[in-house]
Design a protein around this nucleic acid. Structure first.
Lengths: 154, 154
DNA sequence: TTAAATAATATCGCATGCTATATAACCTGT
DNA sequence: ACAGGTTATATAGCATGCGATATTATTTAA
């Protein structure tokens, strides 16, 4: 009797068991859920860190905003230029550094600050509704540790 | 004595306490870590679900691939057309449905399948290194529940 | 059997993210 | 004062993702 190896199926990969895949999927769903809530107000999820950082009349440089949002500088530059185009932020020269600009929210943006907070809370509540109280804190803690582990490499 | 209300600071928002923000951040770090490992081989993280789905010679339609990757159809169309341009996949007409096309990996792509698996395992291991064994399973389980909760709404 | 509904792709337009690189202003040490 | 390094922003070019809509083929129902 002879045996034949038909196929190895080495490429079987269960996406549900991959932290990277699941995290990416969850992130896209978070973004979509937030965008759906903010679109009627003319905002989207990339505006959120800027709105929060510039809340209460704060004025920050592009660099400070990029750090607050943990995104790269060119990405923040693009986001700010879209927000400026849409009348959400205004820029003025930093009086102490001619290289830098200081950004602040315009009155129309300030009026929408509550909507941003509400969207964030609503979506987080819906997502975390699948976890019990103890798990919620642990989830955030684990995410922070995963971020720290990955951030260390680059 | 008179008191003055200086500011309300209602917009204070701790990103570390927002599941949506942390998930998005972690997802971007996962993608960057994987891209760094796959770039030398001419691949990137969007190729991964396609590579896995078409592994071992499987042949799937664009729709099936989009479902496997849990992304929208136009996104998969764009990814497949880039992969076709770069010689990673080939398409042929579905003999049973003239609307549909069947995609499969080209030999050069198959040769890189191991690199994709290695990158996925390496990055997941590094990320989950911040969690103990019990937490790892719980993390994946929680992500699945969060995905299910958010997926339910859209 | 044919009109209407459904299904698979294609395409447009846009936002968000990245890397790599350029430019201009600032700072430091001599 | 100034050469050289650092820092803040700008820009180019690209990938990945989305929603909206068009096109063509298939299926279903009358």
């Amino acid at each position: 009797m002879r045996y034949y190896l038909i196929a190895s199926y080495a490429m079987q990969f269960d996406r549900d068991k991959s932290a990277g895949y699941m995290t990416n999927w969850a992130a896209r769903l978070f973004a979509r859920a937030i965008d759906r809530r903010l679109k009627p107000v003319g905002l989207s999820c990339a505006h959120m860190p800027v709105m929060f950082a510039l809340g209460d009349g704060r004025e920050l440089s592009q660099k400070a905003l990029a750090e607050a949002a943990a995104i790269e500088q060119p990405t923040m530059a693009a986001t700010l230029s879209r927000m400026e185009r849409d009348g959400l932020v205004q820029r003025r020269q930093d009086p102490n550094d001619r290289r830098a600009a200081l950004f602040s929210l315009t009155p129309p943006a300030r009026e929408r600050a509550d909507a941003v907070l509400a969207a964030a809370r609503d979506v987080n509540a819906r997502a975390l509704g699948a976890l019990d109280a103890a798990e919620r804190a642990l989830f955030l803690d684990m995410l922070a540790r995963v971020v720290a582990a990955l951030d260390r490499e680059g």
